[in-house]
């Protein structure tokens, strides 16, 4: 619709929009995160919700303790192999539409603890991640930027066609297999449908 016509109509008190915009506007302004802090990044996440860098003004009003009521999982901190099955299980319990922000270097790729025997080298080995935030720990402003990037991603999703979000595509899975504890590590070590090996991506 023509933007000038929209503005003209709104001056008369008539608000014109499409279903898509309305749907996405409602979704993006009420993303409720799950209380899921693992390590040091969790403290920066808590600081972001405190009085100085208020995250509630972006719609993340309440942090829900139960995954059944949350839309967003902010994986903040190092995911260890001992914790990884619980993370995937929590992700499976969240209802669609659900999003994941990987906060901090540890959640993206293992971070400074990459050499560890108990460290999972990035949570995107098992679950799909929407926004990655680098930093160790990222500043609260960076987390707000990531939140805004997620909101832009949501508002760019369309209701029909190829770029519709995952929860409207019936054939895509919304639950991912939970890894088991093996004798030397996790089995399987990664979920090949979700994990894209950066080296292979670079090699084309």
């Amino acid at each position: 619709m023509d933007q000038d016509l929209k503005t003209e109509l709104s001056k008369h008190g008539i608000f014109a929009t499409s279903f898509e915009e309305l749907y996405n506007w409602g979704r993006k302004n009420s993303v409720w995160p799950l209380t899921f802090g693992l390590a040091c990044c969790a403290i920066e996440m808590i600081a972001t919700t405190m009085a100085r860098y208020d995250l509630a003004r972006f719609g993340a009003e309440v942090f829900r303790p139960s995954p059944r009521q949350a839309d967003l999982m902010i994986v903040s901190g190092t995911v260890t192999k001992k914790m990884a099955p619980q993370v995937v299980r929590l992700y499976n319990q969240m209802p669609e539409p659900k999003y994941v922000i990987a906060m901090g270097a540890c959640a993206i790729s293992g971070g400074p603890f990459r050499d560890g025997y108990n460290v999972l080298k990035g949570i995107d080995r098992f679950i799909p991640v929407d926004v990655h935030i680098p930093g160790c720990p990222p500043r609260p402003e960076a987390l707000i930027h990531a939140f805004m990037a997620l909101q832009e991603k949501i508002s760019a999703q369309q209701l029909t066609g190829e770029s519709r979000p995952r929860h409207l595509k019936q054939e895509l899975p919304s639950e991912f297999p939970v890894p088991e504890f093996g004798e030397h590590g996790l089995e399987p070590a990664q979920n090949d449908e979700v994990f894209r090996n950066p080296l292979k991506v670079l090699q084309g």
């Binding site: 693992l38 390590a39 901190g77 190092t78 260890t80 001992k82 914790m83 619980q86 400074p112 603890f113 050499d115 560890g116 025997y117 108990n118 460290v119």
Partner: peptide, 23 residues
């Protein structure tokens, strides 16, 4: 516990004394 066991002691054995400070 052990859900945040990040092998700090093992990493420090391969890092120098100075490199262990950020850990």
């Amino acid at each position: 516990f052990g859900y945040l066991h990040r092998n700090h002691e093992k990493i420090a054995e391969t890092a120098s004394y100075l490199a262990a400070i950020p850990y």
